[in-house]
Amino acid sequence: MKTIKKLPLALLVFISSLELIAKQTMNNSEKNDWDKTFPKSDKVKIEKASFRNRYGITICADVYIPKNASEKMPAIALCGPFGAVKEQASGLYAQTMAERGFLAIAFDPSFTGESSGEPRYVASPDINTEDFCAAVDYLSTRKDVDSEKISIIGICGWGGFALNAMAMDTRIKAAVASTMYDMCRVSANGYFDSMDEDARYELKKSINAQRTADALSGTNALAGGLPDKIAQDAPQFLKDYHAYYKTKRGYHKRSLNSNGGWNKTSALPFINMPILSYAGEIRNAVMLVHGQNAHSRYFSEDAFKKLKGENKKLLIVPNANHTDLYDNLEKIPFDEIENFIRANLK
């Protein structure tokens, strides 16, 4: 301190300026490194992780850890929506649950985002269900996780995969499906079950013709994501998707729905291989959360009818649409989700 006091005033001012510039540079650097669609919390720390599923695909995840953690924690694996990446809604959910004391991972599904798998942008009812189980494998091996207190949260199409994983993986103590889609049902039957057998046959013919075209070209054509501009007469739910994926609110460069969409032939296995066949045999806790005004609400309501036992719950969020439960913190019922999971980890 004596040495500093002897320095000329101009030099002291210069040193202070350098310190301020350094702090601003560090802050700007942290902002530039933040690639999520939601603000960063100062209550959690974030690590990168990767693990392999039983098909040999490397799954990449962001791990959200409470900063004040001092002992083994309950853990949650999160994924979704269908066509999104971990930097979008699942990361927001993971960060929020970490703020509440859980170790939470948000992961990219096989063939998408930073995860591996070829060809790119393919979906599979089997492999995507396995992705959840592989996440449970990973969490079970972490020294800071209580392996007897692992749960999962699936958003949109990943809500269906969460229930499907729950039906076979007895290690999962609680599952939450938020604004759930049954991707097999909607692929095979269309929205609101409007597709009959003849229409389904024509759809299969079209997709199989695309398989031939892909085989001839040696590439896998993409279906195309949401348009940059949405027509005024488009269904409201498409406008809601556009408002999330194609604007600053939720756009991400690695998100399929924000960009070129899925491989055109991805729908084929979903038409032929239904999930949730054994949902009625799920013994551990399940909570379904859906918006009152969501076009997709019937998926959760019908799935709930299949569930048995006193540890099952359907929560309808008043005045919420499908995408409100992606990122609207005033609508996502995190208190109820946390309470439900904790009550069923005992």
Rank of each mutant, 00 (worst) to 15 (best):
A165Q: 01
T247M: 03
E281P: 03
Y191S: 10
W158F: 14
L163A: 04
M1L: 14
N311S: 12
K40G: 11
K204V: 11
R249T: 11
I150W: 04
L268W: 07
I21F: 11
R254H: 13
N208M: 13
S178P: 04
P81S: 08
I21Q: 12
F82H: 12
A134C: 01
A165G: 08
F107R: 00
G218K: 07
K248Q: 14
T179D: 13
G91T: 02
I59D: 00
G250T: 08
G154I: 00
A61H: 01
G218S: 08
L20E: 12
C79F: 01
F340A: 02
G309I: 05
S140A: 11
T265Y: 02
E197D: 15
L276F: 04
D327N: 12
F304D: 08
V186N: 07
T141P: 07
L314Q: 02
L276C: 04
K45T: 15
F340R: 00
N272M: 13
L226V: 05
T129Q: 00
L103C: 05
V63A: 02
D131W: 01
P74C: 02
S115A: 04
E87S: 10
A134D: 07
A104N: 02
R120P: 09
Y251R: 03
F304I: 06
G280P: 07
A223K: 09
L203Q: 11
P333W: 00
N164R: 01
L18S: 10
Q24M: 15
A174T: 00
A221P: 05
L307M: 05
R297I: 15
T96N: 09
V186G: 08
G309D: 10
Y191K: 09
G225I: 01
P8W: 09
V13K: 11
Q210D: 14
K48Q: 13
